[in-house]
Nucleic acid binder design. Sequence first.
DNA 1: GCCAACGTTGGC
DNA 2: GCCAACGTTGGC
Length: 151
Amino acid sequence: MAAWLVKTEPEVYSIQDLKRDKRTRWDLVRNYQARNFLRAMKVGESVVVYHSNSPGAVGAVGIGVVVKEAYPDPSQFDRRSEYFDEKATPETPRWFSPEIAFQRAFPRLVPLDEIASMKEFKSHQLVTRGNRLSVLPLTEVQLRAIERAAD
DNA sequence: GCCAACGTTGGC
DNA sequence: GCCAACGTTGGC
């Protein structure tokens, strides 16, 4: 089974927000490569939640699980949304969202530089230069390495 | 705020 | 299809 890592800015939506909501639609992603990864997520797969753009607190913060496979992201059809996409129609949607349920918050943040130092992440997209994708695939081994570091 | 990386757009 | 301009991401 594959695993995943999703980035979120904690000021926008944090692991604590996910804990409160119990589950959420992982929406508003507007990058084709990330979109393709979202569409590849299968129910039951684990998702590492990662806080980006968070001064002094960049890194992995918890684990979620895919509870619903991707379906068209409603915001692309909403004219009032800044994520409205005029080229998307219900017949030919462009952007997709799975739903992710909270599983656990790590007892401590696993910082990016610590992940970068793990042998399992040597040359992984998260730690190589130009890591801008907000959804990334992980191997089971990488998932376990992050979980191990968190406890 | 700065800057590197890189995706997207649009003219040709 | 090429490529310059521009916008966004994300670490620091």
